[in-house]
Amino acid sequence: MNDMTRVERAVDSKDIKINAKKVQVYYGATHAIKDVDVEIEDKTVTAFIGPSGCGKSTFLRCLNRMNDTIDICRVEGDILLDGEDIYDKRVDPVQLRAKVGMVFQKPNPFPKSIYDNVAYGPRIHGLARNKSELDEIVEKSLRRGAIWDEVKDRLDAPGTGLSGGQQQRLCIARAVATEPEVLLMDEPCSALDPIATAQVEELIDELRSRYSVVIVTHSMQQAARVSQKTAFFHLGNLVEFGETGQIFTNPVDPRTESYITGRIG
C-alpha cells in the first residue's frame, strides 16, 4: 500500500454533485441495494469497491438511469443531481445521460469510423452547428481521451480495429464529447492489459480537473491509486464511505478491514 501516499489528496471541500438518499434497488423480488446514502463531489474521483455481486455496478447504473433498460429493475429513494431528483417523472433520461456519461467494462466502440464514434454524441445532442465545429469537438475529445496522437491520421478507420486499450480510451473520448458533468466508469480497466490500464488510470486522473468521476473497480490498488473518495459496498449495503486514504489505512468497519486485507471477497 505504499503507492497510496503518491496520490495527492484533495483536502479542500468541493460542491456536492450527486446526493443519493435511502436508495433501494430491486431486481424482481431480489433486494439488490439496501438503503444507500452517498454524496459524490464535483471534480473528485470517487471509487466504489467491494466483492463481486455487492451491488456497486448496480448502484452506478442507477446514477444515469441505465437500469431503465432492464424491465424488472425498480429504484426507490432519491438521487439528486445538482439538487434535482433524477427519477422525477418529468426528467427525460436522455437528457440526464447527456449530463452523466458512462464508460463500460468492455470497450464497446460502435461499428463505425473513429470519427463517427466520437461525433455520435455531439450529433444527437446537436452540440455542433457546422462541420468545423464538430471537427473541433472531435479533436478536443480525442485529446482529452489521450488518444489523439495515435489516431489523428486514421480517423476514418473503424473504431473496432483499435487495440483494447485504445478502444477504451476511444470510448472515454466518446463519453466526454457530449460535455458531461459526471463520468461514470464501470470497471473500465478490467478487460485491459497492465500497460493500457496504466494509460487509462493516468487519463482518469486528468479528467478529474473537469468532471466528477465515479469509478467502479475490482482492484483495491486501482481505487487507491486513482480515487480521492472510496465507498465500500458489501451485500447491497454501503458499509463505509470516506477519504480513500482513511478507508485503506484506518477503516472503521470490521468488514472493510476484512475486505482490504483479503479475508472476504
Binding site: S13, K14, D15, I16, E39, K43, D82, G83, R210
Partner: peptide, 12 residues
C-alpha cells in the same frame, strides 16, 4: 463537503 451550493462551477 459542507458547501452544497447550486452555483455553477467555474468551468463556465
Amino acid at each position: 463537503m459542507t458547501d452544497a451550493s447550486m452555483q455553477s462551477p467555474e468551468t463556465g
